[in-house]
Amino acid sequence: MKETDLLALANQYLLEEALIVVVVLLVVGAMLKKTPLIADWSIPWLLTGSGIGLAWGVMGAISVQATIQGTLAAGIATLGHQLWKQTFQKREGDQ
């Protein structure tokens, strides 16, 4: 999946008002990653909960639509981070 595919996916399913949630979650995720007390496996769960809460705030209602948008925002932020990491960061054993 390319960056343009990710943007097309975001534009297709994510409402415009929820796009800011993706950006905020990327920043929050980077901060959580640098926090030694937070286990790496818990970061996607924390981002999902935060995404739902932020979407409720941005959309102005606690609704199914806002919950779905928050979950999608967390998924796009996590997928975007992993695509970047897996593409550009060298790992041990890579050729």
Results as ranks from 00 to 15, higher is better:
residue 14 L to H: 07
residue 59 M to K: 00
residue 17 E to N: 04
residue 78 T to S: 15
residue 71 T to A: 14
residue 65 Q to E: 15
residue 11 N to V: 06
residue 70 G to K: 06
residue 77 A to R: 04
residue 42 S to T: 07
residue 75 G to F: 10
residue 38 I to F: 09
residue 66 A to S: 13
residue 60 G to C: 05
residue 68 I to C: 12
residue 70 G to T: 04
residue 18 A to N: 02
residue 40 D to R: 06
residue 60 G to S: 09
residue 38 I to A: 11
residue 33 K to E: 06
residue 20 I to P: 00
residue 10 A to E: 07
residue 6 L to N: 05
residue 48 T to N: 12
residue 34 K to T: 03
residue 47 L to A: 01
residue 22 V to I: 13
residue 65 Q to N: 07
residue 9 L to P: 05
residue 44 P to V: 02
residue 21 V to T: 05
residue 75 G to R: 10
residue 60 G to P: 01
residue 35 T to K: 13
residue 74 A to Q: 06
residue 47 L to D: 00
residue 62 I to G: 10
residue 26 L to Y: 08
residue 15 L to R: 08
residue 46 L to F: 12
residue 7 L to S: 07
residue 28 V to F: 06
residue 74 A to T: 06
residue 38 I to C: 12
residue 49 G to H: 13
residue 38 I to P: 03
residue 32 L to V: 08
residue 75 G to M: 13
residue 53 G to M: 15
residue 60 G to I: 04
residue 33 K to M: 12
residue 14 L to Q: 08
residue 31 M to F: 15
residue 61 A to C: 13
residue 44 P to G: 00
residue 39 A to K: 04
residue 60 G to Y: 05
residue 78 T to D: 14
residue 68 I to V: 15
residue 18 A to K: 00
residue 65 Q to F: 09
residue 50 S to W: 05
residue 8 A to F: 09
residue 71 T to S: 09
residue 27 V to N: 07
residue 31 M to P: 00
residue 10 A to R: 03
residue 63 S to M: 14
residue 28 V to W: 01
residue 55 A to N: 12
residue 16 E to T: 03
residue 59 M to Q: 03
residue 38 I to M: 11
residue 68 I to F: 14
residue 22 V to G: 06
residue 8 A to V: 05
residue 34 K to D: 01
residue 28 V to N: 04
residue 25 L to F: 10
residue 46 L to M: 15
residue 74 A to R: 02
residue 62 I to P: 04
residue 71 T to R: 04
